[in-house]
Simulated assay, not measured.
Amino acid sequence: MAVAADDFIKPNGLAFSTIETHLFIADSDLSHDPDGPYHIRVFDVTGSNNLKRCEVFVEVSPGVPEGFRFDDRGNLWSSAQDGVRVFDPDGNPLGRIRMPQMAANLTFGGPRRNRLFIASTQTLCAVCVGISGAQRP
């Protein structure tokens, strides 16, 4: 086993891009600053499975980006304090799904992969969305 990156405060969620050329990792240390902002960083994945060129992809505020997934257009769907935040492939905000509790994790499911399952602090919710979750290559 080799260390790929060691400059995180608290690495949390992680996901590969749909074509697995980028690795996204949340850094979410609540003890550092309880009000955030927290961010998701992106790394290039090289042919030798090394990580290169780290940068902040998005800041998520309010809340902690613990769990996140990609849809079939490359948009990133992330947990947040007020629900789920959605960002385009360049990191621009597209929208959000508001929830009464903090979202902790999420995944796409259902026969068409367009049902978003959201685990919050006390409930599990499901909502149909107008896009499907990403399929792995």
Rank of each mutant, 00 (worst) to 15 (best):
V3L: 07
A4S: 05
A5V: 11
I9Q: 08
I9W: 03
K10N: 10
P11I: 08
G13Q: 01
F16Q: 07
S17E: 01
S17T: 03
E20M: 10
E20R: 14
T21Y: 03
H22S: 13
F24E: 00
A26R: 00
D27M: 03
S28M: 10
S31T: 15
S31Y: 14
H32D: 11
G36I: 02
P37A: 11
H39S: 12
V42A: 04
D44W: 09
G47T: 07
N49I: 07
N50C: 08
L51S: 06
R53I: 05
V56H: 01
V56T: 12
E59M: 07
E59A: 09
V60E: 00
P62K: 09
G67Y: 00
D71G: 08
D72H: 14
R73C: 14
L76W: 00
S78N: 04
D82S: 14
G83E: 01
G83Y: 02
R85L: 09
V86N: 04
V86H: 01
N92T: 10
I97C: 05
I97R: 01
I97P: 04
I97W: 04
R98T: 15
R98S: 15
M99G: 05
M99Y: 06
A103V: 06
N105P: 02
L106F: 02
T107G: 12
F108M: 12
G109P: 05
P111T: 09
P111E: 08
P111M: 03
R112K: 14
R112Q: 15
R113S: 13
R113H: 11
F117T: 09
S120T: 13
S120A: 12
T121Q: 15
Q122W: 10
C125L: 15
A126M: 15
V129C: 10
G133M: 04
A134N: 05
A134Q: 07
Q135P: 01
